[in-house]
């Protein structure tokens, strides 16, 4: 039996093709589905094991990044997505997709209910930047997407990636649950400690990605789908790198999990 991944498209989601390709390379069957087609038939979601909200500029980041798409998903598909998560299935939001998940409140999903507890907002530099960063996995995280991974290089490409929790209570809760899955780090793997450019946006506690308490719902600002081949890496012409890009492992983990538990 195949693992099926639904890749959401439409309204300025831009990274659907490479996200779909990453899932295919990881062994899944990926289907690109327009948001309005899904909204017209939410039951369609049941046939899938993984839901991906790719990167992009949904609705031009107008009002605030991810906000308008988050609202549309919440109002039109909130129940279906809740059911999907409750069924033990996997969700990932990358970059703009992460902003969407956070703003519709699927992350951090403390008590199983959608609520916005954190946000992603303008970088401290107040600039959009395309820059490769070093990422370090939180050893204690239950995030199934990062299984057997320790660190990763990937590009960030955003203007609104600064992660801010509502308050210290939320931050402490995220920490306690292992929900801080991925942090910005130096090239040597040490914490970035907020220093630019290792922490490219000023995120609180160098947070680059978080998951829900189960580790199945995951959002991150960097783009693992942009590091699928060795030649995607900025230093592939000067370093020995494996043929396969390190970002692919993240998709492999999800597909392996789904194949084992959901299919």
């Amino acid at each position: 039996m195949d693992v099926h991944a639904l890749i959401l498209t439409g309204f300025g989601i831009n990274c659907e093709a490479e996200t779909g390709n990453a899932f295919e390379r990881a062994g899944a069957k990926a289907k690109l589905v327009h948001l309005n087609d899904l909204a017209a038939d939410p039951a369609m979601l049941r046939a899938f094991h993984i839901l991906a909200v790719p990167g992009g500029f949904s609705f031009g980041d107008d009002v605030a990044s991810g906000r308008i798409l988050a609202n549309r998903l919440r109002y039109r598909l909130g129940g279906a997505i809740k059911g999907f998560v409750d069924d033990g299935k996997l969700v990932v939001g990358i970059c703009n997709g992460f902003q969407v998940l956070v703003k519709m409140g699927i992350l951090p999903l403390f008590d199983g209910d959608f609520a916005q507890e954190t946000t992603l907002t303008h970088n401290d530099s107040s600039r959009f930047e395309d820059r490769w960063v070093h990422l370090k996995k939180e050893p204690a995280t239950p995030c199934v997407w990062l299984k057997n991974m320790d660190s990763l290089e990937a590009p960030i490409r955003h203007g609104e990636g600064k992660f801010i929790p509502r308050d210290d209570t939320v931050l402490e809760r995220l920490k306690a649950n292992g929900q801080i899955a991925l942090r910005y780090a130096t090239a040597e793997g040490a914490p970035a400690r907020g220093a630019y450019p290792a922490n490219p946006n000023g995120s609180v506690d160098d947070i680059a990605g978080i998951c829900d308490p189960s580790g199945r719902v995951f959002g991150l600002m960097p783009h693992p789908e942009a590091f699928i081949d060795r030649t995607n890496h900025p230093r592939w012409t000067r370093e020995e790198l494996p043929e396969e890009g390190a970002g692919l492992q993240l998709f492999r983990n999800a597909v392996a999990y789904a194949a084992k538990k959901l299919v």
Binding site: N14, C15, A17, E18, N21, A22, G55, R127, F128, E129, D130, R131, W132, P155, R157, H223, E225, A226, I228, T231, N232, P234, R235, T237, R238
Partner: peptide, 22 residues
């Protein structure tokens, strides 16, 4: 140039800025 997304669509092979520190 950093403010342009130069690798969306995941096809990038040689980027605008290269070398040890990109």
């Amino acid at each position: 140039v950093r403010m342009y997304d130069h690798e969306v669509q995941g096809q990038s092979v040689l980027k605008p800025f290269q070398g040890a520190d990109h």
